[in-house]
Design a protein around this nucleic acid. Structure first.
Lengths: 263, 263
DNA sequence: CAGTGGTCTAGACCACACT
DNA sequence: GTGTGGTCTAGACCACTGC
């Protein structure tokens, strides 16, 4: 900053409208801008599906050039936090109205893709408040015994039960969730979380194993007791890497497979 | 292009040093530049691990601004085809000298990461020329009956056999490959492919299932016949999405798990 | 048509690595 | 210091969308 001809916001920290905030670390301007946009995002200044201000507006607001805002938004778009649409604007990403039905579900039918078999048939077996066991608490960054909601359900494709999964949700953020809400919502469960609880899942990690089901699990999935199943343990995170869901799934892989791309 | 003050390479196609080439499609300049760099990459103009010309040099060579070259390289870096190092240059990506030992292996010990258990102990069981069966041929874009090399090996961690895998390689590109080459090379097998055969794997796709091993597989992995195992079928691609390897692996997941990140 | 994101340029300065 | 990639700006024009 501070060259003969140009003399923009004399840096030291992007002043903008972020008064006292104690951001001691130094980082590139566009990273700071990204952080400020991120804060507005998690503060709910713009809701999922809505447009955020144009690049010009944001550049004016933060007193930086459009190119700097652009680079910040580029990174947010790369992380799937916003979606750019030429000629229209930049929109807050959402699990609703998304091109792919299930963004985090990598299970594909052996022939065709997710879209080719229509939505899953969902049946909720359980939805109740429980106390977090040690492992659940650790995954959700809670303490053992804290209130969590457990939801157990089965997803079927073409009438064949294929996924049996337990979701564990922090009791605080998901107060009052009901089985009907989980079963009755039209669209991805993560979209329901956005609409009903204001919780947006941003990324997730999965640990996958091959396991044998116990008698109850085998019965629910209608497979023999010895049949191998895919165990998928997922932790989903909101903004700032805060874990908001632990999901333990058992997948039948006789007519489906878990698809992954390596780069 | 063609504005009052500036008047660069008057577009229509980045002239540069790519004479007759029949690229009818129109695309942004930086995409064209990216394509040209890509061609030099696969033509072997710069070898894995070497530096490519500086952004300024490339800008001069292609008659575009540094910013345009930068955006082209940005995309190549995002696809892991090159690696940028500030102050030093931009380098052709390689499976050797890489931060993570195994770039495509997502199997992690249940505690710690890949690095924490040292390299795998490898033992090659088989290495022979065979004729492609229909499914192998389809995966490698060959015809049934074409020559392929099949390599079967076991990877063990801490003395425990953990991975049993069969690699199928196009006979043409991997002429003369020997069991000793596969077993004796220090470093990732994909690094050996680069050095010995000039084949660089750029990306891969995996299909994952839970299966029960047959008697032979169970014996080799030292598990009971009924034990569930992870079946990982990988197709690895070179430049231009040309498949160059089909790898069928069976993973024990009693002390390891397959780790995936969703974004 | 105006407004939005997308491309391209030119030039300045910063951060880092080698020598 | 020189050379590399990394950041930032300012301004022009293009491509798409919707009024």
């Amino acid at each position: 900053m501070a060259s003969p001809p140009p003399s923009p916001a004399d840096n030291g920290m992007a002043t903008a409208e972020a008064p006292a905030q104690a951001t001691p670390a130094f980082s590139p301007l566009y990273q700071q801008i990204k952080g400020l946009i991120l804060q507005s995002l998690q503060a709910g200044e713009w809701k999922p599906g809505e447009a955020i201000p144009s690049e010009m507006d944001l550049a004016a607001r933060f007193r930086v050039s459009q190119g700097t805002v652009r680079k910040a938004i580029d990174e947010l778009a790369a992380e799937n936090l916003v979606v750019r649409r030429q000629g229209k604007g930049t929109f807050v990403a959402t699990h609703s109205e998304q091109q792919v039905q299930y963004r985090f579900l990598k299970l594909m039918p052996d022939s065709g893709d997710q879209g080719s078999e229509g939505p899953a048939q969902r049946s909720v077996l359980e939805c109740r408040r429980v106390r977090a066991t040690a492992d659940v608490a650790r995954a959700l960054a809670l303490r053992s015994g804290d209130a969590v909601v457990q939801v157990r359900r089965i997803l079927a494709f073409g009438g064949v039960p294929t996924i049996l999964e337990d979701m564990f949700l922090p009791g605080n953020a998901f107060k009052g969730i009901t089985a009907d809400q989980v079963a009755g919502y039209h669209g991805p469960t993560y979209a329901m979380f956005e609409v009903e609880f204001g919780v947006r899942m941003v990324r997730a990690e999965e640990k996958i194993r091959a396991v044998s089901p116990d008698a109850q699990q085998a019965a629910l999935l209608k497979v023999e007791p010895g049949a191998p199943l895919l165990s998928v343990e997922r932790i989903a995170y909101t903004y700032n890497d805060v874990p908001m869901e632990l999901r333990r799934g058992l997948y039948r892989t006789d007519t489906h497979h878990y698809r992954n791309e390596l780069n």
